[in-house]
Design a protein around this nucleic acid. Structure first.
Length: 823
DNA sequence: ATAGGGTTAG
């Protein structure tokens, strides 16, 4: 006689015993030992706990199937209770098809069965099916079978959007379940998930009783919506009410501490966790690793990690990403191999970090491995996150075409995908491609440009000097309320600066929040490249008066402002100030600025001594600054020294070969020119072609020197011819030292006249109303002869001509230039 | 018998 003790009474079934005993035995031999109450096999009385049996089976799908088979054979499967448990068991083990087949075979489904099925779908990520199942339940519901308080938490979890959620909420109210703690927590969670955290708060506020779960739901709701202040507020309230924090509370509050400047609070919570024995909780430890990483405290991250008793994949991922975020790709890679040695299989998160790590290393080969690894696991199509990371990786490695390919094959592109591609183009110097992508994006349904988009596209417009397009984006930023964002605001300041509208830049600067150094740096550098060194220094002074701490970028801006304006003494004292007052160690960029400052002012020898005394190894930009100065001040001897260094440090950069060859050409040393050219040719380098662009009626035209293919070509050359004769009558003599080819004089004159900047200016004169300003952009430095010519053209045409070259601005007016011929 | 709230990313 077999007895099964059960809540609902005692059921007997004789045939089941002989079949069940071996099953129970196999469970016992299976490392996990269920505490089945099999008292004595030989006895005729068994007390058998079926719950234990089901629990035993949740380790393996095979055991579950054997149990199912036995229940079928014995006829017990007809028992609705067992069937529902099976639905649950299969779902738990991840076999949703077995789960739903079992469910469908139940003739009279009770709530338990329905709940199990809905749970099954949610547990296996089939939210849509879960919701459908819930609707089926509603349709078939009667007084006997209708959703109960077990149903709603699961259904709420399955809601795909606010509409679903609100409908479910209505049913909750209709059926009178509004005082259930679990349901309320789920409601709070649902509203927060869709960003409606105020609705979540409403649910929270009307609750009479709250348990830890509901507090935690509210806190995590605020945290996940980036509302740190509210989150910390609720957190304090919770403590005031004397509710003990648990590991869930701690691990949901920790992630908001670092990004919202509450690092100290985070550390205090760490102390609390240690005191209350939550320190070794995996979730808490992982959150701590991440928090310390964001605070830049890598040592603490590592310490937490090392002290952990058990680590999971998230722990490894967190520490890898900690190293990645703090620019230590070598340690990150080391940790990755340690992780695989410890038999942890990398997941999507690991690979996202790894993509960024290999980009930091600049390792082309490893990047292909990362991409291949992801493709082999077909993770590419699962979500856009990883694909965006891969795009970013390729873009950072300079393989923008590969990034594009990834982008084009993406099944689902989100805003970030577009932003990543735009940034990729912009950072690889392909501004017009970036603009092209932006245009495409604007036509793309369902994609709304966000802060990230503006921050990636505005520099491209600045780079192209495309003022009208940039202004349109400025308008858009006002519309979506982002123009006062520090980063967008700074990009806009930079746009106006780079488009030659220093006054507009200044106006905007006065409006944006100025607590951070970012906008200050932009406006200081703006005045610098416009040659207003004095104003730059004044603003720098105001910045210090306002108590804004200058950073290393500020000093690059200040020093280069001094060098553009020839403020040697002021530059020197800023260099001192940076080290002594602000304790900033000069970087190569700062040294480059100083060499430029000294060299340009004619102190080439002092600049060389300065380089020799540098505590770090000078790089190409430092030697390049010296070479530039040598060219201007015709110091061939030092120029040779600089060039030898340059060809060693940065042999691939064409610019330096051109500079050296120009230096020789300007003094007519053609053999030197030939030597350098031969050297460049041997190394397979080709001169970057010079070009100038101009924006007329929102259309940007680009001119190359000697360009003959423009539709208005004839008109342009006619205009230039007319200007040339007027210039000559004003005493213009072409300066052939800027012609870098050894040709006859009349040929030289033609070469000068067809320099790209002149073509662009002529085009501007033809296509814009008289006396309006002309703004052009040149990718290289403007040539000395064109500089002279442009001064005269500004006088003849009574126009302001603003030329931005690769180095700075030249504002020509009535025969003079703002740079005072110092550049 | 079945349910909620937690850590990592571009």
């Amino acid at each position: 006689m077999f007895l099964r003790k059960h809540r609902f009474g005692v059921v007997s079934h004789t045939d089941l015993i002989p079949k069940l005993i071996p099953l129970v035995r196999s469970f016992n031999s299976f490392s996990y030992s269920p505490s089945t109450n099999v008292v004595d096999e030989t006895s005729t009385n068994y007390e058998f706990d079926f719950n234990q049996l089901f629990i035993s089976c949740n380790k393996s799908i095979h055991l579950a199937k054997r149990l199912h088979a036995l229940l079928l054979v014995s006829g017990e499967a007809k028992n609705i209770y067992f069937s529902a448990k099976l639905v649950n068991l299969y779902a738990y083990l991840g076999d949703i098809s077995y789960s739903s087949i079992t469910f469908e075979q139940i003739r009279t489904k009770n709530v338990f069965a329905w709940n199990s099925m809905i749970f099954g779908f949610v547990h296996n990520g089939c939210s849509r099916e879960a919701i459908n199942c819930y609707y089926r339940l509603l349709v078939t519901s009667s007084s006997r079978v209708r959703p109960d308080f077990y149903t709603f938490p699961v259904v709420l979890k399955a809601c795909g959007d606010l509409v679903d959620g609100k409908k479910v909420h209505c049913w909750v109210l209709k059926l009178g379940f509004c005082l259930d703690l679990f349901i309320d927590a789920s409601l709070i969670h649902m509203y927060s998930k869709f960003g409606f955290v105020t609705d979540a708060r409403k649910v929270f506020d009307v609750m009479w009783v709250r348990d830890k779960g509901t507090w935690n739901a509210m806190i995590s709701g605020f945290c996940q919506n980036g509302n740190a202040v509210e989150a910390l507020g609720v957190f304090e309230e919770m403590r005031m009410e004397g509710v003990q924090l648990d590991s869930t509370t701690v691990s949901s509050i920790l992630p908001v501490c670092a990004p919202f400047g509450e690092g100290l609070k985070g550390i205090l919570i760490h102390v609390y966790a240690i005191k209350h024995g939550l320190e070794f909780d995996v979730f808490v430890s992982n959150a701590l690793i991440n928090m310390y990483a964001k605070l830049g405290e890598l040592v603490s991250s590592r310490k937490v990690f090392d002290q952990m008793i058990t680590r999971d994949l998230v722990s490894w991922n967190s520490l890898i990403s900690a190293y990645e975020q703090n620019n230590d790709p070598i340690s990150a890679l080391k940790l990755f191999s340690e992780m695989t040695e410890n038999k942890f299989q990398p997941d999507v998160f690991t690979l996202v970090s790894l993509a960024s790590v290999v980009a930091q290393c600049g390792d082309d080969h490893k990047s292909r491995s990362v991409h291949g690894f992801i493709m082999r696991r077909s993770w590419m199509c699962e979500d856009s996150f990883i694909e965006n990371a891969i795009m970013d990786m390729y873009a950072k490695l300079g393989c923008i075409d590969l990034a594009r390919k990834v982008f084009e094959r993406m099944a689902f592109k989100d805003v970030i995908s577009w932003n990543t591609l735009i940034t990729g183009y912009a950072q690889n110097g392909l501004a017009s491609e970036a603009v092209e992508v932006f245009r495409e994006m604007e036509w793309c349904k369902g994609i709304v440009p966000d802060q990230g988009t503006l921050v990636s596209i505005l520099p491209a417009f600045s780079h192209l000097g495309s003022l009208q397009h940039g202004m349109r984006v400025h308008g858009y930023s006002i519309k979506i309320g982002l123009c006062m964002d520090i980063f967008v605001g700074t990009c806009l300041i930079d746009l106006y600066v780079k488009c030659g509208r220093l006054d507009d830049a200044m106006l905007l600067f006065k409006q944006v929040p100025r607590r951070s150094s970012v906008p200050w740096n932009a406006i200081i550098s703006g005045h610098g490249i416009h040659g207003d060194g004095e104003v730059a220094l004044t603003i720098f002074g105001e910045m210090q008066d306002d108590g804004v701490k200058p950073d290393h970028v500020t000093f690059v801006s200040v020093l280069s402002a001094c060098s553009h304006a020839g403020l040697v003494e002021q530059g020197k004292s800023c260099f001192q100030l940076m080290q002594q007052k602000y304790g900033i160690e000069p970087s190569l960029k700062h040294y480059g600025c100083m060499v430029d400052l000294l060299g340009r002012a004619g102190h080439v020898d002092i600049a060389y001594d300065f380089i020799k005394n540098m505590p770090i190894r000078p790089d190409a930009s430092v030697w390049g600054a010296l070479l530039g100065a040598c060219k201007v001040h015709q110091n061939e001897e030092l120029g040779k020294v600089a060039s030898e260094q340059l060809f060693e440090v940065d042999p691939e950069n064409v610019g330096y070969y051109v500079l050296v060859s120009n230096m020789y050409a300007s003094t007519g040393k053609w053999d030197g020119v030939d030597k350098v050219r031969a050297l460049a040719r041997d190394r397979g380098l080709r001169k970057t072609p010079g070009w100038s662009s101009i924006e007329v009626n929102k259309k940007v035209d680009v001119f190359y020197s000697g360009n003959q293919s423009h539709p208005q070509c004839e008109e342009i050359y006619k205009e230039l011819g007319g200007l040339l004769s007027k210039m000559k009558s004003l005493g213009y003599v072409p300066d052939y030292s800027f012609v870098l080819q050894d040709v006859e004089d009349d040929e030289k004159e033609h070469i000068l006249t067809s320099h790209s900047e002149r073509l662009a200016i002529a085009y501007g004169i033809i296509n814009t109303p008289p006396k309006t300003p002309i703004r052009i952009f040149k990718n290289l430095r403007v040539c000395g002869d064109c500089h002279n010519a442009t001064k005269l053209i500004s006088r003849i045409t009574e126009r302001d001509i603003i030329v931005r070259d690769s180095n700075r601005f030249h504002h020509f007016r009535n025969g003079h230039c703002s740079c005072g011929d110092y550049w």
